[in-house]
Amino acid sequence: MSFVTVQDLFQTYDDRPILERVNVQVDEGEFIAIVGASGCGKSTFLRLLLAQEYPTRGAVRIAGAAPAREPGLDRGIVFQKYSVFPHMTVRENIVAGESMRTRWGRFFGSSLKAARTRADETLARIGLDHVAENYPATLSGGMQQRLAIGQALAARPRILLLDEPFGALDPGTRLSMHDFLQDLRTETGMTVFMVTHDLEEAFKLGDRVLVFDKPRWDPHDPSRYGATITYDFDACDGGIPFQRLKEDTHVLQAK
């Protein structure tokens, strides 16, 4: 039984099909990169995974549970921007990852102290301990995204969704964010879905790369048909697993 099951998913906006018959199964701990041209339903697919929208047909199930009707604790999300609360300091943002689910949305007394200590540990791990008292607006783009990921993970979601999280970052920052994400992943073994425009990034980070495209195309009415998953690459070892397989089995190894 796979962890995330997407079954026969259709999404239509005012009679305009966006997604058609999307089927995919994902095991726990897999890193799924999602690529495709603009307007090919990648982001729609992510919103459906997030349960921010409800599909026209079909369902997304996590660990066999009933399809969610609204975003909840089991799905964490990091957007390209606006992912952290601007009116809270960096530390408060991390604490909010745990406290938002409580009755008043905040901790008091000893539980607040404990949450702050945990937040400081998280901040040290993601390298933001020196700016704990600052507001996010004073942080660079890369730091804000690290904070957003740290905050999402503080809530301990079952799957983490990333919507072009590094799209607005410069190339150098982007590379260090890749290292950061890979470290976090080895640490937590989290199931991740990441939408990206960058193919290289997709094959570098992903275990699998899903390509969204329109399988049918009406030249007189381009919006006639929706998109679906057209390729499902195995991207372990940078997308060349069969080469590795051949080398392992057919090449004489020095003993």
Binding site: G72, I77, K81, R103, G105
Partner: peptide, 19 residues
Amino acid sequence: ELIVKAQTLGASSWVIATR
């Protein structure tokens, strides 16, 4: 995005309004 993010952190309508 902020409202959705708060929901994924488990915030109720009341908490989203006040926090």
